[in-house]
């Protein structure tokens, strides 16, 4: 069986995002196979929330995610390395401000 044919018989891949509690953001937790979005959510419930990990699930079909090219990581990210002035650490804060 060619690789292409094997893939054709596989269900589509989905990425799963779980919100652990109200107010927090959805975090990527992993992926799974499912026929459609409804089954993806139900599978995600069974695979990723067995131990009360979440209160909300997002799924998105993996093919809809576009990623940065790992080979271009150096160009993309390293220029930020020596620009510490981009962090707001050079301000004098009044003493009354405690939660910064």
């Amino acid at each position: 069986m060619s690789e292409q044919k094997a893939n054709k018989n596989e269900w589509p891949l989905w990425e799963v995002f779980i919100r652990s509690k109200a107010g927090l953001d959805h975090k990527h937790v992993g992926s799974l196979h499912a026929i459609d979005e409804q089954m993806a959510i139900e599978n995600a419930r069974d695979v990723y929330t067995r131990r009360m990990e979440g209160v909300s699930i997002w799924v998105v079909e993996s093919k809809h995610i576009h990623a940065s090219d790992p080979h271009k990581a150096a160009d993309m990210f390293e220029p930020a390395n020596d620009k510490i002035y981009r962090h707001p650490t050079f301000y004098d804060l009044p003493d009354e401000l405690t939660h910064m």
Partner: peptide, 11 residues
């Protein structure tokens, strides 16, 4: 038949 349904059933 697939990992996900295996887990669903055992749940």
């Amino acid at each position: 038949p697939v990992l996900e349904q295996d887990i669903a059933l055992t749940n």
